[in-house]
Simulated scan of single mutants.
Amino acid sequence: MAITAGGRPVLLGTAALLVIDVTGGLLAVSSDVNTWGEAWGSSALLAAPLPMMVAQAILAWLAARNARPPVGLVAAGVLALACLVSAISGFFDGGLANDELSGGLVAWQVFLLTATAVVGVLAIVRVRQLWRSR
């Protein structure tokens, strides 16, 4: 089944978020705040962990399709919850106050958290669309 017009925003937003995550990991490595093994792992400072990135991609793809609305509805709901919890926790986990991060890298973290929140909001919009089409 093809991606629906209503599903495109959440899919494109997630794709942009994944680019931001990859770029953040590269910034972390080049700035010596993470190693290659840490940059997309549980101790990543400027990117989401790789398993989260994969989950976000799969959930966004499922949410963007309208072949089986219950599947898309659940996927969009889980994506919204994951992104919003991640964004909120990112402001309180101490990462923004990490002494290893320059002002520019802290700004990158804020950008990443904001992008994550935006994808969460797009996923909520998708939940509403799919809920109404049931």
Rank of each mutant, 00 (worst) to 15 (best):
A117H: 08
W36F: 14
S43A: 13
P70T: 10
L84H: 04
I20Y: 13
E100N: 12
N98R: 06
A57R: 00
V19S: 05
L105N: 09
W61V: 09
V127P: 00
A117V: 07
N98V: 11
F111G: 04
C83Y: 00
F91A: 13
V85W: 09
R126Q: 14
P70Y: 09
P70R: 03
A16R: 07
L112F: 14
L122A: 11
P69C: 09
V85A: 14
V106R: 01
L113K: 02
L79D: 01
A39T: 01
A97D: 11
A64P: 02
L81M: 12
D93L: 05
S43L: 13
L17D: 00
G13V: 08
W40D: 04
G13F: 13
T114P: 00
G7W: 09
L50P: 04
I124H: 04
G95A: 13
R65M: 11
L45S: 05
V85H: 07
V125N: 07
L11V: 14
R126W: 03
S86A: 15
L11C: 06
L11S: 04
L79V: 07
P69N: 12
G120R: 02
A15C: 01
G41S: 15
V127M: 12
A60H: 03
A63N: 05
L79S: 05
A48I: 00
A55C: 08
R68L: 14
N34Y: 08
V127Y: 03
L130H: 02
